[in-house]
């Protein structure tokens, strides 16, 4: 059972090659906290319904915590349930924390002589260095090699917001906001700018879905595409929590990859003013 979950997660993580992928998300119980020694509970899950735990937990070992000073933070009381992972953060530093998932690597697909489709890394496989050379037949039919990255972020602020955890590391698809992510209010539109390996990219697709899917008939997704500067403008329909996913792919890849693709996911909370 455990193996199946892990396998499914890894399969889903090897995203861009697969036609359909599940939605990953991290949901902090609160994103703005006051007090001397605040604690916050965070849930992490993989499910297509936003934000309902009904599929797989997003396992804690895929996640890390960055503290306002840029150092790693501790996840307390980690528990993995059938449908979600949960943990607590003790916000001992003032400022903005980040919960992060960051994965990247080579992916390959090809066809055998018999016409069967093959993927690497395979189901449940964690690639080791040198595996690409050993396990991917370079002469195979329709061989496609891509470099893909997935980055997921959620922000939590104790006291006044800070910017250290917002710094881009210029790898994969990343997002910069015109307003601090813990300063979003429903009456103020925000501009989001997307960067691939550090450069703004046009044509990235951005999907933003409001919380509470169970109580409506449609996804109510905002579907946007970045302009020449890599930007999209978002008018929040209302206060609440939103799941954001952006995707981008092009052929500016480093060999042996012929494509590079990035996925960026964030949970954003918008308050009423």
């Amino acid at each position: 059972m455990k193996f199946k979950k892990t396998a499914a997660l890894l399969l889903a993580l090897s995203t861009s090659m697969a036609a359909e992928a599940h939605r990953y998300w991290v949901l902090p119980a609160a994103t703005i906290l006051s007090g001397d020694d605040p604690w916050v509970t965070v849930d992490a899950a993989v499910s297509n319904d936003i934000f309902y735990f009904n599929h797989f937990p997003l396992r804690a070992n895929f996640l890390s915590v960055v503290r306002p000073d840029g150092t790693g933070g501790e996840m307390h009381n980690v528990a993995e349930g059938k449908h979600r992972t949960t943990f607590d953060l003790n916000l001992k530093q003032e400022g903005t924390y980040k919960v992060l998932m960051n994965t990247s690597g080579l992916r390959a697909s090809w066809e055998t002589e018999q016409g069967d489709r093959k993927f690497w890394p395979g189901r449940g496989e964690k690639p080791k260095p040198g595996d690409f050379e050993k396990k991917v037949p370079k002469q195979a039919k329709n061989l496609k090699v891509g470099y893909s990255s997935t980055k997921l972020e959620a922000f939590i602020t104790a006291g006044a917001p800070t910017d250290t955890v917002l710094t881009l590391n210029n790898q994969g698809l990343e997002m910069k906001l015109s307003t601090h992510p813990n300063d979003l209010v429903d009456s103020e539109p925000v501009t989001l700018q997307f960067f691939m390996d550090g450069a703004p990219v046009a044509g990235a697709s951005v999907v933003i879905i409001p919380d509470g899917m169970r109580y409506r008939d449609s996804q109510q997704a905002l579907e946007l595409a970045t302009n020449a500067d890599g930007k999209v403008k978002v008018d929040w329909p209302h206060a609440g929590r939103y799941w954001l996913e952006a995707e981008y792919e092009d052929s500016k890849a480093k060999p042996p990859a012929t494509t590079r693709s990035g996925k960026y996911i964030a949970t954003l909370e918008v308050l009423p003013l």
Binding site: S34, G35, D36, D37
Partner: peptide, 8 residues
Amino acid sequence: AEGEKWLK
């Protein structure tokens, strides 16, 4: 300082 928790 428990009460500071609700200042937000």
